[in-house]
Amino acid sequence: MAFRQRRSDLLKFHRPKLVLPTGTQAELSATLKPESRQCIKNLAAYTPPKQRSRIPKSRSAAVLIALFVGRKGDLYVVLSRRASTLRTYAGDTSLPGGRWEPSDRTLEWTARREAYEEIGLPVDRQRVPLLCTLQPFLAGNQLVVTPIVVLVLDNTIQPLLNSSEVTSLFSHPLVSFLSKEPPFPLELETLELKYHTYVDIDWKALNGKVRMHRFQTGREAGGTKPIFGLTAFSAQY
């Protein structure tokens, strides 16, 4: 039987209230820095602008911006290093995500499914609640990508990497995507590299220029690529 929802149900599905599991609210309040707490509130209250035109599902994709709280109360973004054997974006630093599939109920489901397949993040709205859906943007491959932001509450979750797609998993401070200063000590191999750089490129689809950011991960000496392209664009949202 096909899965169908009324319009009112869809509205609640895409913009649910952030209901945290019992005991989690008090635990977060004791752990989070004030700026991290405000960031979560802002994300949970965000509503993307209404789209003027319908986007074909065949051209849709989603990425998952999975946040978690560090030991000192800061928010971090989960990132991965793509396998070197992949046909596209081999070895790049990326967010979990991929194309919409006919079995996906929503783009949130697309992002969660891909994260489960790539890094083993459970498709569980209690342990990993939705914060918001950000405004979609056009990627270089002509896919319309929607970033989905979630908060990982369960710190006992163990990643399970799909070795055919992901080589390693690491994190980066969320606030550092708004800074020009590196969040990590500089290594000898990276002393001459700026932590943050950008370039403005012509984007024919938008009849204008798009600013593309690039951030060092602090792991370049070990072969990890900087955060750039679609991943940097999504995280800087």
Rank of each mutant, 00 (worst) to 15 (best):
P102N: 14
P102E: 14
D104V: 11
T106K: 02
L107Q: 15
L107E: 15
E108C: 15
E108S: 14
W109C: 08
T110K: 01
R112E: 15
E114C: 03
E114N: 02
A115S: 15
Y116F: 14
E117A: 13
I119G: 07
I119H: 04
G120W: 06
G120N: 04
L121I: 08
P122L: 00
P122A: 00
V123H: 07
D124K: 04
R125I: 06
Q126T: 15
P129H: 05
L130E: 02
T133R: 12
Q135E: 15
Q135V: 10
F137A: 08
F137I: 10
L138M: 07
L138R: 08
A139N: 09
G140M: 03
G140S: 09
N141G: 03
N141M: 03
Q142K: 15
Q142H: 14
Q142F: 15
V144C: 11
T146V: 11
T146A: 11
P147R: 03
V149I: 11
V150C: 13
L151G: 11
V152G: 03
V152H: 06
V152A: 04
L153S: 09
L153T: 09
L153Y: 08
N155M: 13
N155A: 06
N155C: 07
T156P: 03
I157C: 05
Q158S: 14
Q158C: 13
P159W: 05
L160H: 13
N162W: 03
N162G: 00
S163P: 02
S164R: 07
S164L: 05
S164C: 03
E165H: 04
E165Y: 04
E165L: 13
T167E: 15
S168G: 00
S168L: 03
S168K: 02
L169G: 08
F170A: 05
F170N: 05
F170P: 11
S176V: 09
S176H: 08
F177M: 15
L178G: 09
L178T: 07
L178D: 08
L178K: 14
L178Y: 12
S179W: 06
